[in-house]
Design a binder for these strands. Structure first.
Lengths: 223, 223
DNA sequence: TTGCTAAACAAACGACTGTTTACATCTGCG
DNA sequence: CGCAGATGTAAACAGTCGTTTGTTTAGCAA
């Protein structure tokens, strides 16, 4: 069982080494649950059954681990978003607002239940980082999602030609809030409703979220 | 200079001791900026110019410090909310939805700029805790805001008699998201709009937020 | 004055932090 | 084979963590 039949690019750490993946997987979950500073490297190395020094070896530092995590997980989301947005414009010259919002929100939410995008913990981690003022978090999120966010602001503005740009941007901000809070799945609304409302049910969440946001977007701008 | 002319209730820590306040003030700011686990008690005691052991003496533990912080800061918000809601019902038998939303959102946002409610850092701290899955955070938030939240869900449902209860609850959840994200002031929307949109401007934020949410609340329920 | 107690203090507790070092092991290529 | 480079590992690094300890100060009551 010669499993080490890997690494065809001798340059640097291009191997499929399961160690890397195992670290990323565990780190994703623990970071999401306890926050960056709430988890020690020993907890990660322990649970991933990996030597402590391996983390520094593969990722350089704890921050490097977070950056690598995002570099791997975030790109597919941003790409899927742009792909779905392009699909909107293929189907109609002026896509419906609801379809644009769907293209933006769906990739962010469904990857929690579609394992092909990675562990379901990433969506929580992202929501968590979104409310952190730490410089590193902001830099990472900006790098991963600025481009797709800008394109969607443009697309929404084009779908609502009578709405001032600033109004579109404010409402985009509110949409981000609703999205992140749904992603965070804080348990708050479950507690308030005895479990009747569950943000973890992403299909249902999207079905309620998109009409709600679309109505908000379409309302008259503030004077 | 006998400044220690305090403490008339010999029971327990009823003195006005500025130490307690200084600790709370600093902890509020540092917790908001770096998160619970991102700040050490030494950083707090150092910046508050207080002995390290004083924190344990006054608050029992680090968790106790957070609980004390919320016990002091959160109550005024919840009370102000209910006060404003009651004022709505005094002015009109069936208050406008916008007024209800204003009564809910305004106390949460303005206390960042009205020092009578405490330091402006508390609003960020609250937003941060809202996305944390830690059991302690959830317990603290629930204890502080469950009652007022339920009352507002009822009030919104009464203002929108045609909307199914579950739909109201979903939309309340989305409102919480928009509110918390505005409170967190993550800098994301500023970066995306070159500073044109600034959630830190709470007056403007409310002016854009309430019509947006009201339109969402009033839209037809999902089939 | 003598107790009593809240408050403040320095110092230390053991455990844990991220990172680095030095050394072992394994791999594929010349 | 032999050696270079990638990978894995144990141990130690210098700090920081939250908490506890024992002691001292200060003000009030009897």
């Amino acid at each position: 069982m010669v499993k080490a039949r890997a690494k065809n690019t001798p340059s640097r750490k291009a191997a499929v080494a399961p160690v890397r993946e195992r670290i990323l997987e565990v780190a994703e979950r623990l970071f999401a649950e306890h926050g960056m500073s709430g988890v020690g490297l020993r907890a990660i190395s322990g649970e991933a059954k990996v030597n402590l020094a391996s983390i520094a070896y593969h990722f350089g530092s704890k921050d490097g681990l977070l950056e690598a995590l995002f570099a791997q997980r975030a790109a597919p989301i941003a790409e899927e978003r742009l792909r779905l947005l392009a699909a909107c414009y293929e189907k109609a010259k002026k896509p419906k607002l609801e379809d644009i919002l769907d293209a933006f929100l769906r990739p962010a939410l469904v990857l929690g239940v579609e394992p092909r995008f990675g562990g379901p913990a990433f969506v929580k981690l992202r929501a968590r980082l979104a409310t952190e003022p730490e410089a590193l978090s902001r830099k990472i999120l900006a790098k991963a999602f600025d481009l797709s966010s800008r394109k969607f602001i443009d697309a929404i503005a084009a779908a609502l030609p009578d709405l001032p740009r600033a109004e579109v941007e404010w409402r985009f901000h509110f949409m981000l809030g609703a999205m992140f809070y749904t992603m965070a799945d804080s348990g708050r609304i479950q507690a308030l409703t005895k479990g009747r409302v569950d943000p973890g049910d992403v299909g249902r969440a999207l079905r309620h979220m998109i009409p709600f946001l679309a109505a908000g977007f379409r309302s008259a701008p503030v004077p």
